[in-house]
Write a protein that binds this DNA or RNA. Structure first.
Ligand code: ZN
Length: 455
DNA sequence: CTTGCCGGGTG
DNA sequence: CACCCGGCAAG
């Protein structure tokens, strides 16, 4: 059963969705859903899970039902698929619909049917093996469903060994191509953005784990299909909340409450002992000018800094670190290197970080500012060379677009190429392939700058 | 080699 | 306008 994604509303929570490109049994092909058909240009919106609000990939997962780009907000009010199903009398016990992580189609609202996904293709439109394995989120506690607060808890199918977990949606990896699975013990050092604090004595509890390194295949999923190659090339990470509590709620308020608990816990812990935060292998108590310390515990989120240099995406835990990184690695010299070449990213256990691309302005305030702007421009002033690393709209006022005819005699200091850097993300051509040229956006068909997957 | 897309066509 | 494509830069 497929619903038009047009009808899908979305919520920000909980994510009962597990996605992956790893799966097993063979499957029926269904026509690809054009991302552009969902919420305008938003290539990857979130879906409503609890009938509360909508959001898209660029919105803060929990609180903000609008796209931070501001251009999708009007399109987020769609009628909820769940209500829709209830109206038709098809609702069953589950409150949480399940989605095909690849194309965002809802395929079931009922527990019993939750594992029947007939949709399977990867984001290239290439048919994938069945999602059966993917969909094996287990309800470990059904409870009585009385509205969101008592929504059933879910356990991640990817890691059945530990207690109650929430599976968060799998988003495209925002730190570049997914890495091959890491050795379990190496993962501490290697895993990029996905980390949260890892409590020393609670291994595996305080971390977000990236798909593919989390565990054995889900029970019941045939082992075939979880082969190394598939894992290696998996274009997605799934995000699993593994934070402390076993009583996670799959509800908005539950999660918020849970976050606050975490925050409180972390605050107190942080005060007592200098935590061995080794998520990024570096000490994070370096002074670095900014108030890194408080930032680090702000609202139970970890603040991270992501280099925006094209094709870099390096994530470090301190502003100083990322600045140093930019200077040394990318600029190679300048002390006055612009500090706006990175993003501050506050991450928390429930957020699957979207691929970066951010509006320069911070006029976007999620939910009354009660917490967490998921991405924000760093509050730094720079007085340096306006080096724009990529297309990211971060630097400077007004985009320096290419003006071949304006032969002004202002010799660009140094070697600043005026050519517009090529977009980072995959465009229609790559996504759909030459054989599906009819799926491309018109611009791509005309060999113009892609309009669907803008950077 | 492939990909993205600018600039310059054509109807 | 819509549409196509040579050619180039970058990867
Ligand atoms: Zn396109």
């Amino acid at each position: 059963m497929r619903k038009s994604s047009e009808e899908l509303d979305m919520d920000k929570v909980t994510a009962a969705m597990v996605l992956t490109s790893l799966s097993t049994s063979p499957l029926v092909r269904s026509p690809p859903v054009r991302p552009s058909e969902i919420f305008g240009n938003c290539p990857d919106p979130f879906l409503c899970q609890l009938c509360q609000a909508g959001g898209c990939k660029y919105s803060e997962l929990l609180e903000v039902p609008v796209c931070i780009f501001g251009k999708h907000s009007s399109k987020l009010k769609r009628h909820c698929p769940l209500k829709d199903s209830q109206a038709r009398g098809t609702a069953s016990t589950a409150i949480i619909p399940y989605y095909c992580g690849d194309n965002n189609d809802v395929y079931s609202y009922g527990l019993e049917d939750a594992f029947k996904c007939s949709i399977s293709q990867d984001h290239h439109g290439i048919p994938q093996p069945s999602h059966m394995a993917v969909l094996q989120k287990r309800l470990i506690e059904h409870g009585t469903v009385r509205g969101v607060e008592s929504a059933p808890q879910l356990q991640c199918s990817r890691d059945l060994r530990r207690g109650a977990r929430l599976c968060l949606g799998v988003r495209a990896c925002d730190v570049g191509p997914c890495r091959p699975p890491l050795g379990r013990e190496d993962s501490e050092r290697e895993v990029p953005v996905t980390h949260l604090d890892r409590e020393p004595r609670a291994r595996g509890r305080g971390a977000l784990q990236a798909e593919g390194q989390s565990a054995e295949p889900a029970e019941g999923a045939s082992a075939a299909g979880f082969g190394g190659e598939q894992r290696d090339s998996a274009p997605f990470h799934s995000w699993v909340c593994t934070c402390v509590h076993g009583d996670l709620q799959t509800s908005v308020r539950g999660i918020i409450r849970h976050r606050r608990k975490l925050e409180a816990a972390r605050m107190s812990t942080n005060r007592k002992r200098v935590p061995k935060l080794r998520a990024f292998g570096k000490s994070r108590n370096s002074p670095s000018g900014e108030k890194a310390g408080e930032a680090a515990v702000l609202n139970s989120m970890k603040v991270m800094f992501k280099c925006l240099w094209k094709s870099c995406g390096k994530v470090l835990s301190t502003a100083a670190g990322i600045q140093k990184h930019i200077r040394t690695v990318h600029l190679g010299l300048s002390r006055s290197a612009p500090t706006t070449l990175y993003l501050v990213h506050t991450d928390h256990a429930y957020q699957a970080t979207p691929p970066v691309t951010i509006p320069g302005s911070a006029k976007f305030t999620p939910n009354g500012g009660s917490f967490s702007i998921s991405w924000q421009s760093p509050p730094v002033t720079f007085t340096g060379i306006p080096v724009s690393p990529t297309h990211h709209h971060l630097v400077g006022p007004g985009e320096q677009r290419q003006h071949p005819h304006t032969v002004l005699s202002s010799p660009p200091r140094g070697t600043v190429s005026l050519r517009k850097p090529r977009g980072e993300g995959k465009k229609c051509r790559k996504v759909y392939g030459m054989e599906n040229r009819d799926l491309w956006c018109t611009a791509c068909r005309w060999k113009k700058a892609c309009q669907r997957f803008t950077d």
